[in-house]
Design a protein around this nucleic acid. Structure first.
Lengths: 187, 187, 187, 187
DNA sequence: CATGAATGAGCTTTCATTCAT
DNA sequence: GATGAATGAAAGCTCATTCAT
């Protein structure tokens, strides 16, 4: 894979991310993506054999970045409290940064097994990392706890993505709230 | 003829629920819904002015049923523990019952404001009921706590919907787990 | 045909005239006509077996009115000059009065032989009346002359129907102009 | 590839002319035009963004051809008599040649402003050319006279288009008749 | 006579994908 | 590798007409 090839590939994935994210899968045309990427329509098919495959590839790159970044922020934290807070901050900040790309979270192609697999794999990796963390602190049921922690965080995406008044302070508040609830329960 | 009218209306909504739920919005044709409902294509348009409107109406009916059922099960519970357990059981059992209709939760028409409004309204009602509950027990931050509780429950939908080995025991386990975590934190 | 029947019939024809005239044949729905006439959709079909037949009936009534009126105004005129002027005034005033119903002259159903027959028959009757007039003054080629006279008048419909500034003076001017040109040629 | 492009464009316009002309606007399907032109349905939309636009483009090409031809035949005539005869012959011969395309003159899409504009522009150009001619011979009211001349000619289209027995001699007769009437009046 | 709920054939337009250049 | 003209399947919606009441 030459540098030029990689450049064009990333240009396509970037364009796909922007358009799928802002308009949704079915509302985005391959020709729009080609134009946004600055290449010809036919060229897309030299890189991806179908629209679905492109969508899945774009999603996977996004997932990989999420996981990669998660590992990095976790390395800078040392107590359980710090690590959960880092993970929560990473999760919510991610949504906060992409609040203009809400379609990513609601509109995907429907009958694509590869995408479903990628989604499941992502969740396994994500909850695996959190579970590993909890295991190292001897917390029981690490997998269920990890999933629940992610669930607590994820429910706030509705606020973040759809409430235009949502501020960074609201973000901080929810980060601390989620960690505290997870650790100590409601009050 | 109001009874007949209601019958046909419900036949359409039932058919829409089945097909949208198993195939997804974009993969379901209006002609399929008509056939499934046992009526002519044009008749659909006497009841709903567009495919989107039909989808939103079907969704709203589902939401209403969920909320209605929730209120009923909550009336039979009297302590906080019982009430949270009832709500958790209701939520997860709902997913368990509709595990064949996974598309309902992932594939909706894009850019439809009426649907987004319905979704938001549902979440407000749902979290409002839980928050009210928490308030009556003097728990701080009732709204955030309510959302978090729902988040914990909702994350398990991935297991329920996509893990074909998922059993009713797994269900029971998660119901108790969710309530305990919510009340007392991890460990 | 009872009075009530005739009333309803005329209500339908009136409604059809208004809607076909302002919107055009294909842009007017049978249901619109029914509503405009204050009756039910199905009732239309008790009077006319199809949309085309209704259009043709409406057109014929209009043609009959035109011819009937023409005969009346001609009876009040006695010299050739007066008669031609009366006919010209009648023709152009007709367009002037229905300038809000321009679709009548441009948009008709396409493959309806009955309508084409009605149109031809009208033109035969119209030019026949004028030709008869010319014959009584021993003018040669009465049929061609009659047609030409009608042609001179008819060309002005574009001005009348499409020029919103067109005034009654413009009308008078064209009436005299047409008669003079027809009788004496240009200058 | 401009030649090929032009070829395909003309193939489409030719096909549209034939089908719209013989069947009418609403009775002609885009798929029929594509087939007649020997291309795919979707290709039509690379050249014209809608059925209406195609109809208008076809009409304009026809109008342009009419005007172009008119200018040519007028250049070969030198007296007023000759010029009017040339114009009359051109007008009536045009109808005679396209007598199989009667729908062109009766059936156009409704509510299309671009088409109405094209029609008006054509009439302005046509009557403008005739009026200019009359002006050069110091004839008063050149615009009204020009319109009337056109009206005299145009009325004969009914005979030409709808009378299957209409011969070339009938054509010649009307050409001379129209010019004589226009110049000297009846008788 | 009158109604209007129900029908279903019909058509424009879109867009993912291909392939000759 | 890159292009973009060409393709053609596919689907939402309309509306003239029917017929049970």
């Amino acid at each position: 894979m030459s540098a030029a090839h990689g450049d064009k590939l990333n240009a396509i994935l970037d364009a796909a991310y922007r358009l799928f994210g802002t308009r949704g899968y079915y509302e985005t045309k391959m020709s729009d993506i080609a134009e946004e990427a600055g290449i010809a329509k036919g060229t897309l098919y030299l890189y991806f054999s179908s629209k679905e495959e492109l969508f899945t590839a774009m999603t996977k790159r996004d997932f990989d970045g999420f996981i990669h970044q998660l590992r990095i922020v976790l390395q800078c934290a040392h107590t359980l409290e710090e690590q959960l807070t880092a993970a929560a901050a990473h999760h919510l900040t991610y949504y906060y940064r992409v609040k203009d790309y809400t379609r990513l979270f609601f509109h995907a192609p429907n009958n694509d097994q590869a995408l479903m697999d990628a989604l499941n794999e992502f969740l396994q990796r994500y909850s695996g990392i959190i579970a590993e963390l909890l295991t190292s602190y001897d917390i029981a049921n690490p997998k269920l706890h990890a999933q629940s922690f992610i669930g607590i965080l994820d429910v706030f995406k509705m606020d973040i993505l759809f409430n235009p008044m949502f501020t960074e302070e609201d973000l901080e508040l929810r980060i601390d709230f989620a960690v505290t609830l997870f650790r100590y329960g409601c009050k």
